[in-house]
Every structure is written in structure tokens, then in C-alpha cells.
Design a protein around this nucleic acid. Structure first.
Lengths: 348, 348
DNA sequence: GTGAAAGCGCTAACAG
DNA sequence: CTGTTAGCGCTTTCAC
């Protein structure tokens, strides 16, 4: 086996042709450039024989394109993000793009660092879930004519492409669902963060509650504490302080996980009796006992829309065309955890 | 805002110094090369002002290093893989490496394609869960002196670095656990694939069963069907055909998911009464009802060991030193699903 | 102390 | 039809 990589020059020398000829042939421009069949064949045979692999770094330097996209989310190991990642990956590979995944932990410094890093590395485009304070970095990318699509959330005062869901409507609908099933004291457990998607989710809940002249119960947990014991404790206290709650709405899937854990340990009875809805579905919620009703985001559609916008930008050379705003609907999947209240009480 | 990227040349011209000087200063070699403080300051101030970002592609072409690692798994959206991905990512970033994640679907063609792709792109190292038939591609990387670490499985007749767990021992132990809890007819549901880790898992189970002179019940499902209705159907049939089973051992987490779904839908009673163990833990198994006993892989340790070997190879220039073989222990986490058989029957 | 220049491997305009 | 050549942006040797 050959230890050294072959270069165009090596091949050219070996075959007594010029680098250009080899380059043309390998790029499929042999016919177009009217290179003789004989030479074409010679080159193809030889390169196949030595298993020639072009140096894409050199190619990138020359063309200015890396064929790499960045997909930046809060945490790639989170169900929602990793599922979308997988969809994006598949579409991208079909379009001959590779995808670099990274997690920013919803942290501005880390986000900025990552964006700079990949900017230096000349990636062709960014698909980003922005952390709260990185408007400047996003702006920088846009100024430098680099395709960016945000998703899950965006900045009100920054004109970017984005793909989001109708958060407000979704939680409004979910809350209505609980109300229609007879629940009256509905708690809302969410993340304490000043981001548009979370504000939307809270608003949807609050509106539904006020429209029905009911009392709202809101618990806000700092994002940084969702991984720690502290988050769990806050939910425990919230449930204890509000014993009259007959339903809870969790605004993200990791909160649901913590919440279920608390309910299971401290209030096994409530776990069966309370109405429960989670934002973001998970395969496992379906097979939980009780199965958990969920507001499911359209993962495939989100992935597709993101890539559609991205490919469009990538293809229209540097069109500073209008930005695309896509707002998708979610789907409420009623399961056992939000069965009518009386029914639940009967069973338990 | 400036539309164009700045290059070293631009800076040099602007500041009336040479490219070399700028390069030295930016690489922190100013002092070493005895460049005057004045010039150093001038360059630093200016580059900061225009927010100069070096072109890392050019740098890579020149140095031959990309500072990118590839992490290839079956499916990045799977819990086990995405958790490890996250750990690897964190370690890598600290070492100033970026990580490209990709999913090979345990498919040889896709694996080969991906490996070639990244090889062309000059990535510095590969961490791979190999699909069954890509020994040749792995060999190619090794021949070309590219650091490779396999994990989860390896090839018996290929001398590579790898990090795996003691599969045989783990399932043996798990099966023993079920036996000690009074279960006698234990089924083993696994993937039909000729790979070392799955063979180990099956062997561990079979050995435990034979040692105790019991009957084995094995269901092998093709990997390709685990995502489809077909896989579900096979489990359904398996359970129907073997009504005397009092316990099941699932050999991977996605099989467990399907299995739980089947049990929940078709045999809610069995779900409570049967002994259940899963290979690969998941946060949600802990809060399931019943909580599911699991053979947990040491995710952090796996990630750390992988990166330790990788960094070692990356640093020792081209040392063809001996290959590293790391075999880690798993941890059996007994939960409610494997409570003593009598206890379970009493409760239900 | 600083600069000129070669070269990493590739593309493509231009020349013949 | 094929070859020469100028870069892409950077690092680094060698020269002054």
C-alpha cells in the first residue's frame, strides 16, 4: 500500500500529460474540452488503479466553497435536536453537503466562539438555534454574505430567514384541550429565559387561562438548572405549594422528563390522576404509563424547510433576496395523560 | 460593514509591512522572531479593529492538518450515540478539535462513502462504529497513517485501536440477575447481524442459560427492520408463540422501545409481571412504569477513553506504536422491571 | 528585525 | 486538443 497521497501533479508526471488535462478529465470535462478518448481512458484507468482521491481542502481553497454546513443547537443529545439533525444530515448528503453538528448549550460565549470558528473554516452555511444574545454574531454572518437560517426561535429586530412553529397557538390549543377535558387548575412549567419561543409558549397558556377566567400557575426554571438537582427541587416545591393543581403543561421535553420523575417518586397517584401535556414529543412518551399527551413539532417538515431555504440561498449565487419566514403548525397528540378528568379519577 | 474578507496580504499592504511579519505576529511568534513591539502592537490593533479571521482552509492546506475529527455511528439520533457524541464533542473542543458527526445506518456502502469523503477532506482522525463489512476502508485509513479508533465493536482479524465493553459478561450477568430473581423462561431479543458485540451479548445470555440447564428463547431481527412495522410484528409473534416466557432481555435500546410498545399494547399485564432487562440505559427507562432494569454502558468513560487514544495518536507524530485495546465494564442497574418474580406477581 | 519567495494541491483563463 | 501559468491564503526557510 502506498503511504503517500497522490496529487494531480504526480499523475500528470506519471502519465506525461499536463495537470490541466488531468484536472479536466477528473472533473468530467474531458468531452467538453475535447480531450482524446485515449487520454481520458488512460487517466481514468490510472487514477482508479492508484485510488486517487483529490484533496478537497485544496479544492475548497481554490473554489472558496467547502460544501460544509453547520447545524448548531442547544444540545445535540436532546431528542428533538438529534432527530432534526438526522433529517438535515440526510437531505444535506443528498445535495452533496456535509453537516457539522455542535451544541451551544444556549450559551452566548460558546455560540459566538463556535460561529467564529466555523466562519474561519469557511463553511458554506449556518443553521442555528440562537442563544439569547448572539444577534451580533448572526449579523456578522449576514454582513459577510453567509447563508444563515435560524430555527426554533429568532430575533424580533433582526431580519433573518427562520423556520419556527406557532408556539403561542400550540400551547393555547394544548391548554384548551386540558380545559375541555375538565381540568381547571393548570400549571405551566417552563424555562426562565427571555426568548421568543418561550414567551410564545407562555403567552398561549396565559391567554387560554385568562379567556376562561381561571387562575394561572407558572413555574420558571433557569435553563442552567434543568440538568441539576435544583431544577428537580423547584418542581417538587411547585407541586407541593399548589396541591390544588389538577394538570400540568411542560413547555419542553427535558422539563417533562424531570417532572415525570418527580411525580413518579413523590406523587405516584397524581401521576395517574393529573392531566399532563408536554411540549415536544418523544417516542418513549407514547409507551409511558400513562402515555403522555404531547404537542408534537413537525420534525420532518422543519428539517425539510430549513434545508430548502438553505439550498436556495446556496444556489442563488449571492442574491440578497428577501428573507424567508416559515411558521409551522404543531400537532396535538392526545394520549392517556389527558383523558377526561372524571374518567381518570374513576380508573384510579 | 465590510463585505470582503481580509487576507494577510491586505493587512500587510495596509500596514506597510510584509506578510511574513503579520503572520509571525498573529501566530504569537512576534517576540521569538524579535519583531519590534511597535510593529507588533500596530498589527494587533489593526487586526482586532477589522476583526481579522484567518482562513483556516488555507492554513489546513499548508499544514496538512484540519483539526477536524470524524465521529461515525449508526444513527446520531439514537440515545446512546448522541450522548457519547456530546461527550466527545466537549473533550474535542477543549483540545481545539472540531467533530463531524455522521450516521452510517450500519450500512457498508454508506460507511465507505463517508470514510472516503472525509479522507478526501483531510480530517485528522476517525472514531468509528464500523458497519459489518468495512474492514477494507478501515485498513485503508490505517495504511495512510490516519488515526482510527473503533468503538462498540471491532474486527477480530484487524489490528486496530478500539474501546468496547465486555458484552458477554454483561448479558451473562444480566441473565444471572433475572435467574436469581426467580425467572426461568428468559427470552433474548436481539439483532440479526454478524458483529462481534452482538455475538458477545448473545453468548453471554446463552452461557448463563446453559449453565443453568434451562431452555433458551432467541429472536433475531434484521437491523433494517428495527425501524419498521415488521420488527414490531416479529416481537409480537415471538411473545405469542412463547406464552411461557416470564422474562425478556433486549439486546439494544431500540429493541427495548419496540418491545415495550408491544407489551404495552398487547400484554399490559405481562408488562407488569414479566422480568425485563434492557441493554443500554435511557433516562426515560428510569421513570417508566415499571422502571426498566438496564445494563448501562459507561458513556463518559467510553467517550474519555476514545478521546484519550485519539489525542495520543494525534500527538505522537506518526508513531506506529502498538494498538490500544480497551474493554470496559458495564453496570447493571436493577429497577422494578426485574423485581423478584413472586413479588411482582403479588403486586399485580 | 524584516521581507521575498517557494509551495501546499487544485482550478481555469489563456495560449498555442 | 493540450499545456503553461496565475493564483486561492497561508507558513516558513532563507536572505539581507
Amino acid at each position: 500500500m502506498n503511504k503517500k497521497r497522490h496529487s494531480l501533479k504526480d499523475i500528470a508526471r506519471e502519465l506525461n500529460v499536463s495537470v490541466t488535462t488531468v484536472s479536466f478529465v477528473l472533473n468530467g470535462k474531458g468531452k467538453e474540452k475535447k480531450i482524446s478518448d485515449e487520454v481520458i481512458k488512460k487517466i481514468q484507468d490510472y487514477t482508479r488503479k492508484i485510488n486517487y482521491r483529490p484533496n478537497l481542502v485544496a479544492q475548497s481553497l481554490r473554489t472558496g466553497k467547502t460544501k460544509i454546513l453547520v447545524f448548531m443547537v442547544e444540545d445535540i443529545s436532546n431528542y428533538f435536536f438529534s432527530k432534526i439533525a438526522r433529517i438535515i444530515e440526510d437531505i444535506a448528503y443528498k445535495e452533496d453537503y456535509k453537516v457539522l453538528f455542535c451544541s451551544n448549550e444556549n450559551n452566548d460565549d460558546r455560540s459566538r466562539e463556535l460561529i467564529n470558528l466555523f466562519y474561519e473554516r469557511q463553511v458554506d452555511g449556518f443553521i442555528i438555534i440562537p442563544s439569547p444574545g448572539i444577534k451580533d454574531s448572526i449579523q456578522m454572518l449576514i454582513n459577510n454574505n453567509i447563508p444563515v437560517v435560524l430555527f426554533d426561535r429568532y430575533f424580533d429586530d433582526l431580519d433573518t430567514n427562520y423556520v419556527v412553529i406557532d408556539n403561542e397557538n400550540s400551547t393555547h390549543h394544548g391548554t384548551q384541550h386540558l380545559l375541555s377535558r375538565g381540568y381547571r387548575n393548570i400549571g405551566f412549567i417552563t424555562i426562565d429565559v427571555d426568548q421568543i419561543q418561550m414567551k410564545g409558549r407562555l403567552d398561549g397558556y396565559l391567554n387560554a387561562i385568562t379567556e376562561n377566567k381561571l387562575k394561572s400557575y407558572v413555574l420558571k426554571i433557569p435553563y442552567s438548572e434543568t440538568g441539576s438537582k435544583n431544577g428537580k427541587k423547584q418542581i417538587q416545591q411547585f407541586l407541593q405549594k399548589n396541591p390544588d393543581l389538577d394538570a400540568v403543561f411542560f413547555s419542553t421535553n427535558y422539563l417533562t422528563q424531570i417532572g415525570l420523575e418527580v411525580l413518579r417518586e413523590d406523587h405516584p397517584r397524581k401521576l395517574q390522576e393529573m392531566g399532563i401535556i408536554t411540549f415536544d414529543d418523544n417516542d418513549l412518551f407514547k409507551i409511558y404509563s400513562p402515555s403522555i399527551s404531547a404537542v408534537a413539532q413537525p420534525l420532518k417538515k422543519i428539517g425539510k424547510e430549513l434545508m430548502k431555504i438553505m439550498m436556495e440561498m446556496l444556489q442563488t449565487d449571492k442574491g440578497i433576496k428577501s428573507t424567508r419566514h416559515v411558521v409551522l403548525d404543531t400537532k396535538l397528540i392526545p394520549r392517556d395523560s389527558s383523558l377526561p378528568k372524571e374518567e381518570k379519577l374513576m380508573h384510579s
